[in-house]
């Protein structure tokens, strides 16, 4: 009886070792590739919001974590910095907290002078067919930010049309574009007014 059990246990053990070995082997094979892919993807996503030809080599290493609950929401957000035409440009993963159904995660690139280089939606829960037009895959509305600039808090043109600004709202959905515009505007003003704060911020973890 005991032998029976121990035999089974042995087989189980062998199977487990074999399985782990296979998995570990495949992991060895693919780990490097996965890391590389992850890196590439990160860079290419950052590149989306920057003008073509921008130097991205130092982008990731420039990453710093910034916390400002007024502007970027409750959590620390990563900010990357680079230069376009000799002027500093910041790329930030910010949050628009007042979407229709929750947070809208955005990637925003702004210059120190308030110029918006590009905006992309990273994640959102907006109503399909209404608010989800902030995705580039659904609508190119998000491109309308490119080239716009914000100068000060009272800048009324940086708003949706319904509020007298120059961004379209979607039929049947005002809340979503309004939230996005507001978040972009806040981010632009932030880097315009306090770029120095970046220098004090801590660097991103090694994972990036």
């Amino acid at each position: 009886m005991l032998r029976f059990i121990s035999k089974n246990a042995a087989i189980l053990g062998v199977a487990a070792v074999a399985c782990v070995a296979v998995v570990a082997g495949v992991n060895q094979l693919t780990a490097g590739e996965i890391a590389k892919q992850a890196l590439e993807q990160k860079i290419s996503s950052l590149q989306q919001v920057l003008p073509a030809g921008t130097d991205t080599s130092s982008l990731l290493s420039s990453c710093r974590l910034v916390k400002n609950s007024e502007v970027f929401g409750a959590n620390q957000v990563p900010v990357y910095s680079t230069q376009v035409d000799g002027k500093p440009v910041y790329v930030v993963e910010t949050v628009a907290p007042d979407g229709y159904s929750g947070n809208i995660y955005l990637l925003v690139a702004v210059g120190a002078d308030g110029t918006v280089f590009g905006v992309r939606t990273l994640a959102h829960k907006e109503t399909p067919g209404l608010g989800d037009k902030i995705e580039l895959a659904k609508n190119d509305w998000i491109l309308s930010f490119t080239g716009k600039s914000v100068h000060n808090d009272q800048d009324t043109h940086f708003a949706v049309r319904k509020d007298g600004g120059e961004f379209d709202q979607f039929a049947g959905a005002t809340i979503t574009p309004r939230a996005v515009v507001k978040a972009v505007k806040k981010a632009a003003l932030y880097f315009q007014q306090q770029p120095q704060i970046l220098l004090e911020a801590s660097m991103c973890g090694g994972a990036q």
């Binding site: 067919g129 039929a171 049947g172």
Partner: peptide
């Protein structure tokens, strides 16, 4: 409503 939200709220 979920298929045609724009039309259904106009």
């Amino acid at each position: 409503l979920i298929s045609f939200p724009t039309q259904m709220t106009s």
